[in-house]
């Protein structure tokens, strides 16, 4: 049974868990399946995330910490509605956007087309995208490359465009996976400024970072994930303390 809709909750996760079945070979054609019908490859089951439940409140900045491979990225994908859960469910109120090194962009499209597609996917109307179009291009410093296919862009240009779309279009709930590694130092300064100005105050943000300074500075609540377990959820100071003590 789903809970009553609570206006203060942006994402509600209930009894969610995730296992991955990893096989030795790809085993993904009809031919392979027929030939190996009586001798299926051994599948290894990885408990990526063990049963957990929690809420993310509307308007809060929620931190997610843990070592590499602890399950943070899998959790974020489930919370954003990209991966299905094996058990339980995730209830999302509004649109979500997951951002790591880039956002969803097609390399076959130009910067202009990608801005319109991404903006539209994030729930904006064409007129609304028209209004922020120049801002996106200016912020990404791509004025001379508007109608160039992004497959010809450098990785820095791509990252700036993705960041700029995310900053200006945004979704109701933003999942930011190590985003402060984008672009050069100058761009990073600009990114942090805009992050503080437009996201922290106006949107629900889930921030994943290995930088405890950033987590401490921005997040009101933090979840610490260890080997797929939700070890702690609560105030950021305690979460960071447990995490650092575990890693000593």
């Amino acid at each position: 049974m789903k809970p009553e809709t609570d206006n203060n909750i942006a994402v509600a996760a209930r009894n969610i868990s995730k296992k991955f079945h990893i096989t030795e070979d790809s085993h993904n054609t009809v031919k392979q399946r027929l030939f190996r019908m009586f001798n299926p490859p051994h599948a290894k089951i990885v408990d990526a995330l063990k049963m957990m439940s929690f809420d993310i409140k509307r308007g809060e900045c929620f931190g997610l910490i843990g070592r590499n491979g602890s399950g943070k990225s899998t959790l974020v994908r489930m919370l954003a509605g990209v991966y299905p859960t094996d058990t339980g469910y995730v209830q999302i109120n509004g649109s979500t956007m997951l951002m790591n090194l880039g956002v969803g962009m097609s390399h076959e499209l130009t910067a202009r087309e990608n801005i319109y597609v991404s903006g539209s996917v994030l729930g904006l109307k064409i007129k609304e995208i028209d209004l922020i179009f120049d801002k996106i291009i200016e912020f990404a410093e791509l004025q001379e490359f508007i109608d160039v296919k992004i497959k010809f862009f450098s990785s820095g240009m791509l990252a700036r465009l993705g960041f700029s779309i995310a900053v200006n279009a945004g979704a109701d709930v933003m999942f930011l996976d190590e985003i402060f590694a984008v672009g050069d130092v100058k761009f990073q300064e600009k990114a942090i400024k805009v992050f503080e100005k437009s996201w922290i105050e106006q949107k629900t943000v889930v921030l994943i970072s290995h930088n405890m300074g950033i987590i401490q500075k921005y997040c009101q609540r933090v979840a610490y994930i260890k080997n797929g377990n939700l070890e702690y959820i609560g105030d950021s100071e305690t979460a960071i303390k447990i995490y650092l003590a575990d890693n000593e």
Binding site: A80, V82, S95, M97, L98, V117, V121, A171
Partner: peptide, 11 residues
Amino acid sequence: TKKYLYEYTNM
């Protein structure tokens, strides 16, 4: 081919 449309959002 259109993974970019659903990999980062809940569309």
